[in-house]
Simulated scan of single mutants.
Amino acid sequence: MRLEAGVSAHLGIPHRFVCLTDMHVLCDMVPLEEGWPGWWSKMELFRADIAGDLLYFDLDTIITGDLSDMASIGRLAIMRDVYRPDGLQSSVMFIPEAVRKQVWEVFTEDPAHYMAQYSCGGDQAFLELLWLGKAAIWQDVLPGQVQSYKAAHMAERGVPDNCRAVIFHGRPKPRDIGWKL
C-alpha cells in the first residue's frame, strides 16, 4: 500500500501504521464495526478501543516528504477546507486521544440524525460543530506541508518542494493520474 510505504519512508520515529477498514488489507488493521456508509465510517476513529494519539491520513493521500513536524504537533490539528475557507477538511488530522471521547459521545447519541443533518458536508461538517475555532489548522501551523492536488494545480505545476502530504478529494484519485496506491 502506497500510503503505508510513504509514511514508513518519511516518518523518522517508531510508529504503528494501522488501516481502519472493512476490507482485507496487507497491513495491520482495525476492523470497522458500525456499518456507517462512506465517509461516515471515519467516525470510528473516535472509538474508545482505539488507543493513543492518531496522525490520520485518508487512504488516497500521497506522502511526499518528512512527516516529523506533523507527527510532533501534539495538539488537535485538521485542514482548512480548500474551497470553503471557513470550514474544515478531514483528509489529514492529528487527533489526540483526549479529544476523541467527546466526538464519539456526541455522534453516537444519534448517528442517523447527524448523517442526515450533514449529508452534504459529511464527517468534516460534523467535526466543524465541535472543532471549528478550536483545532489548529495545518495550513496555518505548517504552511505548505499539506496541499490539495486539485487546488494547488499540481497537474500543471507539480508538487511544491515544501509539500509533505498531497490530498485527493473527489476526482482525480491518485490512480487516475498514474500514482498507484
Rank of each mutant, 00 (worst) to 15 (best):
K180L: 15
P111L: 05
Y56H: 10
F168Q: 02
E109K: 13
D86R: 12
L127W: 08
D140G: 04
G144Y: 03
I50Q: 01
P160A: 12
G158A: 09
D49P: 04
R2A: 06
S72R: 15
I62F: 07
R84P: 02
V82S: 06
Q89L: 10
S8A: 15
P111C: 05
L132C: 09
R75G: 07
F57C: 00
D49R: 10
H24K: 14
L132R: 11
E97D: 14
R157C: 07
T61R: 00
G122E: 03
M79H: 05
V106I: 15
S41I: 04
K173R: 14
L129R: 13
R2H: 14
R164E: 09
A125Y: 07
L129V: 13
A155K: 12
D140W: 09
I167Y: 03
H169I: 11
P160R: 04
L129D: 10
C163V: 13
E105M: 15
F17H: 04
A116W: 05
S91Q: 05
R47P: 03
R84Q: 10
G35S: 06
D28W: 00
K101Y: 09
K150P: 00
V166W: 02
L129C: 08
G121T: 14
V18W: 01
F168L: 05
T61F: 02
M115C: 09
V18H: 00
A5M: 11
A151L: 06
S72Q: 13
A51P: 06
S68L: 14
L54C: 01
E128S: 14
P96A: 11
A155C: 09
D140E: 15
V141P: 00
S90I: 03
P14T: 12
S119I: 12
W179E: 09
A136I: 12
R171M: 14
C120D: 14
M1D: 07
P31F: 07
V92N: 01
S8G: 05
V18L: 12
I95N: 01
G158I: 12
G121K: 08
I177Q: 03
T64S: 13
F107D: 01
A151H: 08
D176T: 13
A125E: 12
I50S: 01
D110W: 02
C19T: 10
D176C: 11
F107L: 08
G144C: 08
R171H: 14
L88T: 06
L20Y: 00
R175D: 13
D53P: 04
V106E: 11
A112R: 09
M1Y: 11
V92C: 06
F107T: 07
